[in-house]
Amino acid sequence: MSTLEIRDLHVSVETKEGAKPILRGVDLTIASGQTHAIMGPNGSGKSTLAYSLAGHPKYQITGGEVRLDGQDVLAMSVDERARAGMFLAMQYPVEVPGVSVSNFLRTAKTALDGEAPALRHWVKDVKTAMERLRMDPAFADRSVNEGFSGGEKKRHEILQMELLKPKIAILDETDSGLDVDALRIVSEGINRVREGGEVGVMLITHYTRILRYVQPDFVHVFVDGRIAEEGGPELAEQLEAEGYDRFLAPA
């Protein structure tokens, strides 16, 4: 059982005009077995939250705290956060030329576990996970994300989530740019990981579409760098019908 606690998180990015606040006091608690959908209009700070939690150097934490089972996440380096159990499925996964998917996955697994995985089991696990995500076996030999289509990149992110078994998985717009078939395959992958009941999921999305496949326990509406409204799955349905307009209307 793990818990990620985000308390009054403030984050800025450096711009030419100086530090610009993006997150203005985010409070959120995610426990194992829970799925929290973070929804909101473009520019509301959803991705900033995701990358800040993962430790991207571009984002400066100006206040608040983040704890995973009591440990201070913000004091950890990027790799330490991952080894503590955090995982970020990126909206725009990065190409790493010359590094094969299989080498990358094995290196990551070894780093997370502190020892190399038993070869025979590992090869089988990778093969099975790839099959279930309808990924061609040839993917294992391709360079990480290089020349992948949008859908292939997202499947590769979910493949990592399945194999690396994080405590808290942050999925940053994993649904964006996917056609319905790919969305279904990716959603099935997310649901397989959720079935174990061991992962807490932060599902960041602009659209309600993915929520038909991945049922959230909680929905949080993100506006202007903080959570403006919270509720159960019914909130997503309401947003589907009404859009974000009522949150954007000037006060």
């Binding site: 991952a82 996964p93 990480v144």
Partner: peptide
Amino acid sequence: QLFYLMSRGVHEIDARRLVVRGFFAE
């Protein structure tokens, strides 16, 4: 690239090594 690899738990030194090896691999 470094951030991506490290966000998967890979130590900075190993991540750098992977990237440079990858640069020359082909």
